[in-house]
Design a binder for these strands. Structure first.
Length: 417
DNA sequence: GAGACGTGGAC
DNA sequence: TGTCCAAGTCT
């Protein structure tokens, strides 16, 4: 009675849904044998994977693209060829090498993990998911990935790629993140006993090159005949996601202080945003949401001189001052006098324009003031850094933008590493 | 469970 | 040009 049965050309499914998992493994492994990408951290056929290299690559690849990771991975492996070598490295050096990769807690956890493996495991990574998952920076995904890829254990590896492939393969329409448990269930039925590492990488390669977020190349997919979403025509909208929230805009000012051929930098606190990285000293970043629609009027973003931010209607009514900064709860976060935060009194000049940078959860607009001094010491914590050495410092990208804005003629200092 | 936590490339 | 989002983890 089904519509399909009336079409003689279309044969009924050879593989009923319940056997789909079993049917998918072989074609996926065959596809992987033929199309596997050559990646610096990936063992070639017949080679034994280096657990240290697998771990290092998996940490770097968290929320980070293959193309971005490549050079960082090579530099780390060259400089610290073993987990013991890395464990002995000063954190400062690790942060410098990590600068630009983002998610800096990964770098701190990387070092912490190396020390544990080195001192408590004799330099050998544990093989089981349960042990791996206890190590700093290793969560469910990375534990399974190391167990499968480095040690060939049968572990279910679920990353963003696998989520997408599985959601489509089984036409799971519940939005993320609610659908995650179901995805994991289905993924577990797929996981083979043998070649689990290859299988995990096959799924991730498939998601990265064929079963892509937009315009998936279903015609090239080795398991397209098993795909429920393709049959239903839902592949391009899966996995469904909850609507994203708007990014607030924050503002601040920072101070580019030079003394001869040196600039004054300081280190950020260990925890939190850009934790442990260097920065140009500045004001706190206004936490008030100034984005359009937030009910607060903003000044023209492109003016050279920023006017004092207008306080919104919540300022005077005593109704609820729910805004404030971390440092000064209850205080107005509007900074009418940025120079009060300058490292010292000087003839500060506002550099025309703004430095803009978008983080995961907010957009930042930064004014940059410049001045020179002859003083050897500046109140507070910090250090004079030679200008020709700042490229090697642990400066996050937003601070490199600040440097380039303050010294437009010296942008090439950050040319490449 | 939801928010914090970076960056750069693709479209 | 702006939006999406990538081999997630931690709190």
């Amino acid at each position: 009675m089904s519509a399909r049965s009336e079409k003689p050309k279309k044969k009924p499914r050879k593989n009923p849904n319940k056997n789909k998992a079993k049917a998918a493994v072989k074609p996926l492994l065959a596809w992987y044998d033929k199309h596997a990408r050559v990646l610096p951290w990936r063992a070639r056929k017949g080679e034994t994977p280096d657990p240290y290299a697998v771990w290092l690559s998996e940490i770097m690849l968290q929320q980070t693209t293959v193309a971005t990771v490549g050079p960082y991975f090579m530099r780390f492996l060259t400089r610290w060829p073993t987990v013991e070598a890395l464990a002995a490295a000063p954190q400062e050096e690790v942060m410098k090498e990590w600068a630009g990769l983002g998610y800096y807690s990964r770098a701190r956890n990387l070092l912490a993990c190396a020390k544990v493996v080195s001192s408590e495991y004799g330099g050998k990574f544990p093989e089981r998911i349960e042990e791996l998952g206890k190590l700093p920076g290793i969560g469910p995904y990375t534990a399974a990935a190391i167990s499968a890829i480095a040690f060939g254990r049968s572990a279910t590896v679920v990353d963003g790629n696998v989520e997408r492939v599985v959601a489509r393969l089984f036409d799971l329409r519940t939005p993320l993140p609610a659908v995650k448990p179901e995805i994991r269930e289905k993924a577990a039925t797929l996981t083979p006993e043998k070649r689990a590492g290859d299988f995990a990488q096959a799924m991730m390669d498939l998601g990265a090159t064929v079963c892509t977020p937009k315009n998936p190349s279903c015609n090239r997919c080795p398991i397209n005949d098993l795909c429920d979403a393709r049959e239903a025509g839902t592949q391009s909208v899966l996995p469904a996601r909850a609507p994203k929230k708007p990014r607030p805009v924050r503002r601040g000012a920072c101070f580019w202080l030079t003394r001869g051929e040196e600039v004054w930098l300081r280190r950020r606190p260990e925890k939190g945003l850009l934790g442990g990285m260097m920065e140009v000293p500045g004001t706190p970043w206004d936490k008030r949401d100034l984005s359009p629609g937030a009910g607060i009027k903003t000044v023209d973003r492109h003016r050279n001189v920023t006017e004092p931010l207008q306080s919104a209607k919540d300022g005077d009514k005593g109704g609820g001052d729910k805004t404030g900064t971390d440092d000064m709860p209850g205080h107005t976060p509007l900074d009418h006098a940025p120079l009060d935060h300058a490292p010292l009194d000087a003839d500060w000049k506002l550099v025309p324009g703004l430095v803009e940078h978008t983080f995961t959860h907010f957009h930042l607009e930064l004014e940059v003031y410049t001045a020179t001094t002859r003083k050897k010491l500046v109140p507070g914590e910090g250090a004079w850094v030679p200008l020709d050495e700042i490229a090697g410092e642990a400066l996050p990208t937003v601070m490199r933008k600040v440097a380039a804005h303050a010294m437009p003629d010296a942008g090439q200092l950050f040319a490449k590493r």
